[in-house]
Nucleic acid binder design. Sequence first.
DNA 1: ATGCTAGTCTTGTTATGACAACAAGGCTGC
DNA 2: GCAGCCTTGTTGTCATAACAAGACTAGCAT
Lengths: 266, 266
Amino acid sequence: MPENTLPLEPGEWEISPEKSKPLYQQLKDVLAGQIKNGILKADDRLPSEKELCAMYNVSRITVRQALAELTREGLIYRSHGKGTFVARPRIQQELVRVTPFEETLRSKGLEPSTKYLGASFIPADYHLATVLAIPISTDVMRMELLGLGNNEPMVYYLSYFAGELGQKLCDLARELSQQRVAFSTFDLYEKAGIPAPAMLTQSFEAIAARREQARILGVKQGEPLLLVTSLVYTAEGRPVEYKQAAYRGDKYSFYITRPVNQGKRL
Amino acid sequence: MPENTLPLEPGEWEISPEKSKPLYQQLKDVLAGQIKNGILKADDRLPSEKELCAMYNVSRITVRQALAELTREGLIYRSHGKGTFVARPRIQQELVRVTPFEETLRSKGLEPSTKYLGASFIPADYHLATVLAIPISTDVMRMELLGLGNNEPMVYYLSYFAGELGQKLCDLARELSQQRVAFSTFDLYEKAGIPAPAMLTQSFEAIAARREQARILGVKQGEPLLLVTSLVYTAEGRPVEYKQAAYRGDKYSFYITRPVNQGKRL
DNA sequence: ATGCTAGTCTTGTTATGACAACAAGGCTGC
DNA sequence: GCAGCCTTGTTGTCATAACAAGACTAGCAT
């Protein structure tokens, strides 16, 4: 009777231990692919864990690990005693996703690019030293970037890097800028071979453009700007970058997808 | 030689199967407690999985499930071949956390409250119908709220609810407002016994206050406002609420903690 | 001294098996 | 007819076991 369980024939998507990738990863990719391709549609019921075990000839632990990750990523939802179902397609992407600068612009048909404005070493003042967890007066790299869409200024970045990585990132930024490609500071980490940042805190404020900001962004003084202040951490929880980004209010909006944090007050 | 492994004597935190709560939950709570209380400090090494198994007399699966969740929540980080370590304390909280309205105000020493401005049923226009995934002209509940700090307007909420839950939430809001307590629409869900929302998408923009908004918030026209547009989903991915919140730029900033999404472009 | 290797620690992956808890439909006894 | 039980199917929890793979060290060979 429970024939809403579609068979999703294997064979094509045979998963095998020789592929070097973990089995649960392969299974996860297969299922994610079927969901993204519409073979499995919203609210469809997936095969039960036992069926998946048989179909792909893996153990239940493997199946559960794959399903757990898909659940965490919001592609499926599970219901104790009933089964596993495909979530509505709208929020498939990663569980937490912030649309990056380039993508936002491209989606609006604008050509993104990034301009290197300059960089220098400065001694950390009290505030910088506190947020970056370093001693006062330590040298930090201060870097200014300008993000453009169709060569029109969109956002002004002001970044501070702790430690010796500032120089490396700064050189890279200058280089990439000359190639007229768009990049963010996260791209720099990757290219510099630095362990990727894992966590960040951000605050969003609406401010009125001050004279200097207005000049750089090409707007009138007092125009609304979206000021995003970020603090970037490594996986170990060490702060590595403090960044302020001032977006033109009339041109840009910040977009984010995230799970609701149930009123877990501290 | 590896004596940085502190013993964290059990006995006090004996975990037992009779407690009804799952073992991995109990273990997770114990470890989280030790981290929060400073018994385990930043970058301390936790006992290995095998040691934890022996100490608490549970299987490795249980230990791994506890550690996996703690990792996901950002309290610890793991390194293949080396061990498990306590993350820096700054970002302990939930992995993704948005500081809620009341908390933000209280931290600034302001007394939060929420005022019910009104509500009515209106037929959904094209935009509303699209985002809420309902047919055009379906009735939706439109509710206006005002968030105040020390009785000064801070934020203007405009919410739209799909389906029949609008009336319930609206009645609740009117009631709570008379009790002069602060609440958010999420509190309403809980109190109304509606399955809690699981996911939301938000966009942040800086806008200039229009006349009506300026009047309600008590600011001059053209002043910068932080406009946060949210779309709230259930676990199944069904949209249930569309909300616009306009915050006074000079009084409020939005704060968020989240993992970095590695350039996983779609 | 340098470099390689073997051994031993760690976490990561996977299998097998069992029972608990929840959901839903069908059956039985009233 | 209907309440309550029982069976079946599902996901959730937990135990035991084995091997893989990264990290580190001590010791051996060059």
